[in-house]
Design a protein around this nucleic acid. Structure first.
Length: 278
DNA sequence: CTTATCCCCTGCCGGC
DNA sequence: TGCCGGCAGGGGATAA
């Protein structure tokens, strides 16, 4: 479930302390999470390597490593999918809330665990830091936060798609990083009906979306970086979003009951009054 | 090329 | 209380 804001928060937290740290030990506890089929190769590649940089591209995290003895520039690539999460703890107290699928011990004593309840997450060990070299990442559109689309560029993309605008916004090949909540909240801010085909949006509506995408992302990053990331349904989780997952409750603008529909198999929440057109 | 459907997994919640 | 269907912030494979 994590989207661009959660990935960005993960990247910033890891970037604070991880570069320069050497990996003493890496342990794979759930081989299903490996995008690469050879788990035995991981430990010898990772052990002894120093993390040089932490990067984010759309909903992917990249941990760059220093050159191997053979001169290879490996990069550990991670996707959290629905329930993945990196947890940093300097020591372990009791049993973690969720099973650990992957863990690394670093030379400052820090332990980094990768939790993933639903086991959809994936880890790859790329032989190169080049983003485009990994097939899963090569097709990504420009990152929604770092490379904001101009109204003209967004309009050109929309003109070629007949899909509902909400589904369009979630297409990672066109824009990288927006997920279900982002698409819902962005369209609510823009006052645009989620069902309108992208190609039918007038220029003014497209301009609003282009402006609101980075605005919303900054808000979500700021809002969520001050608390522990908990997913819907987890004990202690709190819904901070105005519209998402609030079917039947009053719209913050007009008090009309928030509606829920299903688009491309995913829930869409919207205000039938505020978001009745484009 | 585009779009739609199904599938992958686990766990929580509400209804009966 | 127990069971069961629905649902969950992801994307890939496949089909039309």
């Amino acid at each position: 479930m994590p989207e661009l804001p959660e990935f960005e928060i993960h990247a910033r937290k890891l970037r604070d302390w991880m570069p320069g740290r050497r990996i003493l030990r890496a342990t794979i506890l759930d081989e299903k999470l490996l995008g690469d089929p050879d788990p035995d190769a991981w430990q010898p590649i990772l052990a002894g390597r120093t993390v040089t940089a932490v990067r984010r591209e759309a909903k992917y995290l990249f941990l760059d490593l220093d050159p191997s003895p053979a001169g290879a520039l490996h990069t550990l690539v991670a996707h959290l999918r629905m329930t993945g999460r990196f947890v940093q703890d300097t020591y372990v107290v009791g049993t973690p809330a969720h099973p650990t699928r992957f863990a690394m011990t670093l030379d400052d004593g820090t332990r980094v665990r990768f939790e993933d309840r639903r086991r959809f997450g994936r880890l790859w060990l790329s032989p190169t830091p080049d983003v485009a070299a990994l097939p899963e990442v090569a097709h990504l559109g420009p990152d929604a936060l770092r490379v904001p689309l101009s109204p003209e560029a967004l309009g050109a993309l929309c003109a070629r798609s007949h899909r509902p605008i909400k589904v369009f916004l979630m297409d990672q090949r066109r824009i990288g990083g927006l997920g279900n909540i982002c698409a819902i909240e962005i369209l609510f801010r823009a006052r645009i009906a989620p069902t309108i085909p992208a190609a039918l949006l007038p220029a003014a509506a497209i301009a609003r979306i282009a402006r609101i995408i980075p605005e919303y992302l900054e808000w979500a990053i700021d809002r969520q970086s001050r608390r522990t990331l908990l997913y819907i349904g987890e004990k202690g989780s709190e819904n901070i979003f105005p519209i998402y997952h609030r079917e039947g409750t009053p719209c913050p603008n007009c008090a009309t009951a928030i509606a829920r529909i299903v688009q491309a198999g995913r829930s869409t929440y919207y205000c039938p009054a505020c978001q009745s057109g484009s």
